[in-house]
Amino acid sequence: MTPLAAQEELSLVAQAAAGERRAFGELVRRNASSVRALLRRMGAEASLADDLAQDAFLVAFQRIGDFRAEGSFAGWVKRIAARLYLRRLKGKVRLEAPIEAAEETGGPDESLSALKLDLEQALEALSPAERLCVSLCHGAGLTHAEIAEQLKTPLGTVKSHVKRGLDKLRLRLDPGPLDEARPADGRLGHD
């Protein structure tokens, strides 16, 4: 019989749905890191991220029959985790509409743009609201409307936070336009 570690995701899901806990354990092993990382990227502290990631897998185990395989198992669990985090935040967080005049602290700082920062570092430059909205939207795959509904926040506010967060991330992670704007020098050409 094929070892669990070598089996495809859908096969493991089918076994887990039949009550095979070892198969579910393999799914946890494969996906725990990304679910936990997403929660941390949304702004959860390490211990809370661990706790919520475990709860998300618990819900996934209980409702695995609902998994339709229209996306990845990881994506499905991430959405569960994101909703659990939002539920936890309910009443504790209020997303204010971004103030246009208050410009972000870190503009297109050339020293930053020149570096390829990793996602964690880049996210630190975002406000908590931007970080949460961008992570929910691009990390967990929730729609703007879902985020607005869960956070009881106007849709426009969510869209603004996502856009501003994306703009800041683009400056830090994708400094392409700046590179193109620079005149080509020897380092970019052939040796």
Binding site: S33, S34, R36, A37, L38, R41, L119, H138, L166, L173
Partner: peptide
Amino acid sequence: FETRLAAMFDEAPE
């Protein structure tokens, strides 16, 4: 960029 960002979110330290 948004596509690459989603891929970055999928990457996580073990």
